[in-house]
Design a protein around this nucleic acid. Structure first.
Lengths: 228, 228
DNA sequence: GTCGCTCTGTTAATGGCCGTAACTATGCAT
DNA sequence: ATGCATAGTTACGGCCATTAACAGAGCGAC
């Protein structure tokens, strides 16, 4: 590793950190090339030696944030010595906690994103990895009891099977795919409304709502009362 | 009505229209005071005779968009001569259709909003009206069968009762409140992921997912298989 | 070691945006 | 007809993204 290469990676890392600091403090809109350069005691055009445009910088940060969220979820799901149901709840809780800890990053990922990111692959893959994690837990949770249960909508079942093979889990039954997708959309719905303050004036506890929804999906999947 | 007053309201209306045209075309970020003025063949500072800042303009447009969505939902829910369940489905479908027809406005409401709007009242009220609509339909749908059903979480039930009285529907049972809130968060979750393209690469039909979720909530509420 | 290329930084400059200041013309009330 | 409020104008300052022109440091070939 050259001196130059070393310095370059250092500067790059500093740019990532400074960028996230700005975003966490004041939001993505506050991240300007000029502001970033100021934060690093640099001149603004120097930033362009690292990123061809502000949009490219934002795209880079976006994929990083996806990976961060994914790592947080993986760690939560990996906590061994628990029932699969409990690990699903941990995974979901880590999702919400990450969103609450980094609300601006979460909005960057799920609220403000507009341009599609490098190759459509770098971006969707991390989340698909998290989904694969969830699917594995649900398979473990459901045993083979759910293998024959369907969503009650034939066309949807077909889509779910197709989705499963895209996720590189071709064998999973529609009931598991349903549970995975619905857990994700339900939790995202609650968390994103919580973040935009939509629930603020109501005496509603998002954590309890999520618990209710996730337990409902799990109960639907395994067909019994949950114990832990 | 003065000539001046007439002209003023006309220009104001033109500003609203031109603003939404820009937003619908290229998103909220494309709405600059300068661009708006250009679109009206006006000089930029003239806009400040109508709005003290770009943020104030955006706030005004946001409350308008909330009202538009609310009106669309009211009309859908008002279609008489249907079962309450069917009208709930119509209401939900109109929500999604509005979001798909005006994706940028939807993001403006639920994705990018950050500063709280005039008095916290002008903004939350329209949505609360839509929720009241939904609650009424659900009350009609559930009969009194659900009066004693709870969410299974005592603290949450208490919150739901409190929420009901804030909605000026103090008598409604927790089961109805649960259904109303969960329908909203579920549908929002699916629609918002659909809009950000998160479901694009998956062969999943958002409409079917919503149907599944809404029907599930209704079934949970009325405790029977749905027929209409 | 030194020559020359590349890489990383600089300052200067263009053009867009938000918002203010100073000014002008029109409507309207008296 | 006079005078004030209103609604528009141009001129400006400050911030931003991006490009151009330039300067010095690192580094490989000789």
């Amino acid at each position: 590793m050259n001196r130059r290469e070393r310095l370059r990676t250092q500067t790059l890392q500093e740019m990532r950190d400074a960028s996230f600091a700005i975003i966490d403090a004041d939001g993505l809109h506050a991240l300007s090339v000029a502001a970033l350069a100021r934060g690093m005691a640099m001149s603004a055009p120097a930033v362009y030696r690292y990123f061809p445009s502000r949009d490219a910088l934002v795209a880079h940060l976006t994929t990083l944030a996806y990976e961060q969220l994914m790592v947080a979820m993986s760690e939560a799901a990996a906590s061994g010595r628990r029932t699969p149901q409990a690990r699903v709840r941990l995974l979901v809780a880590s999702y919400r906690e990450w969103a609450l800890r980094y609300p601006w990053r979460y909005r960057m990922l799920f609220g403000e994103r507009t341009a599609d990111l490098p190759g459509d692959a770098g971006i969707r893959t991390p989340l698909d990895l998290a989904m694969a994690l969830l699917v594995d837990l649900l398979v473990a949770a459901s045993g083979d009891a759910s293998a024959r249960r369907t969503s009650g909508d034939q066309a949807l079942d077909e889509q779910l099977r197709s989705w499963a093979s895209i996720q590189e889990r071709p064998g999973i039954p529609p009931a598991v795919a349903t549970a995975a997708i619905l857990i994700w959309t339900r939790v995202h719905g609650i968390v994103s409304l919580e973040l935009t303050g939509m629930l603020d004036n109501h005496p509603l506890d998002a954590e309890r709502l999520i618990r209710l929804e996730v337990d409902g999906a799990l109960r639907q999947l395994v067909g019994s009362t949950l114990s832990g």
